[in-house]
Design a protein around this nucleic acid. Sequence first.
DNA 1: AATATGTTGTGAAAGCTTTAACGAAAAACG
DNA 2: CGTTTTTCGTTAAAGCTTTCACAACATATT
Lengths: 208, 208
Amino acid sequence: MKVPRPVIKRMPVYYRCLERLKNEGVKYVSSQKLARRLHLKDSQIRKDLSHFGKFGKRGVGYEVESLLNDITKILGLHKQWKVIVIGAGNIGKAIARFRALEKNNFKVVAVFDTDKRKIGTELLPGLKILDMASLRDFVGREGADLAILAVPASSAQAVANDLQKAGIRGILCFAPVTLNCAIPVEYVDITAFLKTLAYSVLTEKYNV
Amino acid sequence: MKVPRPVIKRMPVYYRCLERLKNEGVKYVSSQKLARRLHLKDSQIRKDLSHFGKFGKRGVGYEVESLLNDITKILGLHKQWKVIVIGAGNIGKAIARFRALEKNNFKVVAVFDTDKRKIGTELLPGLKILDMASLRDFVGREGADLAILAVPASSAQAVANDLQKAGIRGILCFAPVTLNCAIPVEYVDITAFLKTLAYSVLTEKYNV
DNA sequence: AATATGTTGTGAAAGCTTTAACGAAAAACG
DNA sequence: CGTTTTTCGTTAAAGCTTTCACAACATATT
Ligand SMILES: NC(=O)c1ccc[n+]([C@@H]2O[C@H](COP(=O)([O-])OP(=O)(O)OC[C@H]3O[C@@H](n4cnc5c(N)ncnc54)[C@H](O)[C@@H]3O)[C@@H](O)[C@H]2O)c1
Ligand SMILES: NC(=O)c1ccc[n+]([C@@H]2O[C@H](COP(=O)([O-])OP(=O)(O)OC[C@H]3O[C@@H](n4cnc5c(N)ncnc54)[C@H](O)[C@@H]3O)[C@@H](O)[C@H]2O)c1
């Protein structure tokens, strides 16, 4: 039975909130307390979790650490995902250097570019920028599951095609385009977020 | 009458597709052709646009350039938005250097940080990193509408409070937290996108 | 042991969004 | 000039998601 996409999009939000609670030393949390922190309805949280099983204890709530483990499994974060970054420009470098990814079990194993001046330079100890020409070999040899696409919009579709051929199974796309792909794609169009934000500011009602 | 959020989230997608068509020299486009490019239903595009007015011509479609102008107005992109970036780290610098923002009428007017070693250094010609202590003065004096929040999660809420007090009207938040704010906030939690992507890869059905 | 309080999981209702269907308009064509 | 083709804007239906409401269970209290 298919889980609705809005539910899937909220799971990482629960995850990060539980992680925080765990660090704060909180042992148990109710759907109501979670809801207050996340500006959601408690019934929504319970319904969301019910898609995957029963994790709570009536009268008590959810054990923070065990629910966190359950969500980790649900999202598939108990095994490490190997990630490659395509495009060692502004955004590609920022992400490759972002160490918190590893805490979430996403490991950046390589960065690729076509720019001869960049190829061979070291972004982090042990993380050299590789030639796009070696993409297919690399993925075949070292294995990689996901790709973060940080190239100009004009080359995004071509690169996406290469990624699929190389055996990549999912793409996180920063370029402002809609890709034609047979594998899952998530889009992070930052200018689109700003536009949505601009609209919200313009139409905002006086609230809270 | 309130426009549904899913509609607002699609408007920037229409925008970027029309921009592309304009560059390709296309003069007219039908909802069907747009739908095919964007993997949507034509009826959805027509319905979405109908929330804002009548932009098409029966039997013909939409005039690319004029629809682009209309969407520009709808999203409030005909006037320039002054944007400040908070946190001159990996992601903050990448965004401050991202020139395409200006084409969309978002102008990064300042970058702020608390790190004494960074303050005063120049990120781009004419774009110095300023001291957080001068935030309120700056916003009061120069004016700024939106803030891009690129500080560690641990300080995000405190900074958000400062931003509101300074008069900022909307926040684009890269930190993996849910903020308590009275102004509009959009979240860009990159690890959350990766988690959603991981889930999709795991549960993918063999398709297309 | 009985009562009070708290909280989950879930079925049903309400609310919202997408899709289908079609009349009305615009252009193209013979 | 009437007919055909195309495509919009809109109403209504279908489909999906959120919220409500409550029985069932868990613990604490007296
Ligand atoms: N920088 C940002 O803050 C930002 C924000 C939102 C979106 N984006 C988007 O992210 C993408 C990258 O932006 P950026 O600012 O990092 O650009 P950039 O120009 O700094 O970097 C792009 C990199 O991709 C490389 N490249 C180009 N074609 C390639 C190919 N076919 N294969 C492999 N590598 C290739 C270039 O050599 C360059 O190093 C763009 O699509 C942009 O619209 C960037
Ligand atoms: N780098 C990435 O690719 C990436 C991806 C996803 C999310 N994020 C998130 O974005 C945020 C920033 O990430 P980063 O990698 O750029 O971190 P970073 O450590 O490189 O940069 C953070 C910057 O914020 C500054 N800072 C700290 N406290 C501040 C305060 N109170 N006021 C003003 N400035 C302050 C620091 O001096 C530093 O320059 C984090 O919340 C992170 O989780 C980053």
